[in-house]
Amino acid sequence: MQDKSRIFMLFACCIPVLGARRSTICDLQRQTFRFIPNGLHEILTEHRGKTVAGIEAAYGHEYDAEIAEYFEFLIAHELGFWCDDPDCFPEIDLTWKAPERITNAILDVDAESRHDFDKILRELDDLGCKALQIRFYDAVGLAELERVLELARYGRLRSIDLLVRYSEEMAEVDLEPLLRKHGRLSSIVVHSAPEDRLKRLPSGALLSYRTKSVDSPHCCGEVHPRYFVTNIGCFSEAQKHNTCLNKKISVDTRGEIKNCPSLARSFGNIRTTSLHNALAHRDFRELWSINKDRIDVCRDCEFRYVCTDCRAYIAEPQNLYSKPSKCTYDPYTAAWRSA
């Protein structure tokens, strides 16, 4: 028998997000989400802090059985608790902050590229950049990878992801030692590989071979549940910022400095200017504040704070606020269109 004077509270790290057809509870601590019906979302938000009796009454006692079942579900999955002192349990503050001027960067390389890696890495370091992805569209030698990683050896980067084209030099026996030697490497993904294969090292670093070919920035911008990240960093950043472009800087294969290599607009070439100068341009930050709540369709999607956006490939190129064109999810039917 349930005590109807009790108050149910979600753990503050479990945040309900309303979608058009269904909702999610995003569990920022255990980094996962669960689907809930919109009716339960309403109970958890509009009737937050009320006793069970109060909630039952608010619905004219029409749904007492469902309400009891909902709370059983939430307790069983450790999403919340019966609370005697609700005033002691504030909601989590979702303010996003970062001391870095740039948090992440993309550097594109093809056979024609003539990048001054040393200069680029030094400038990224000065901007405080934490994560760098280097995408090699054409075959690259092991010695070249080694040279670039050596340049990053003492910097402040916390994570380097390499995307490289498959060649005989990109064998597991060669890349694994590279991952062990350069602790900054979080992952090496080898595209255009003969087979799909995945290996996780004890350090957490990842070596992945994928048959998919990645030959230009046009391959980017996919939206798929496997890219979803349910954590406090992404979720809080998504409240007011664009989850892909905020504090990002990129250098494309020709050296053009952009928000992202897939976007047309250049803020100068790295050969003649600096990342600092490009960043100082008043338009450089324009896209940073386009959060999901301002984007058509996305604003009605239950995944909007766990999904990283794309502003390069959008449904209506003339409408900066249209949804990512590579997204096949429809929040109004809660269904993924099969590709």
């Binding site: 994560a131 995408r135 994570s159 595209h191 980017c220 496997r226 990283t308």
Partner: peptide, 28 residues
């Protein structure tokens, strides 16, 4: 993943994957 750093900052510098995907070309 502790890596070398400029020693006036630290010698064992803690590295880990970024909290979100930097780009989206190949789904993990």
């Amino acid at each position: 993943r502790l890596v070398e750093s400029r020693s006036y900052r630290a010698r064992g510098y803690f590295c880990k994957a970024f909290y979100k995907p930097v780009s989206k070309c190949v789904a993990p």
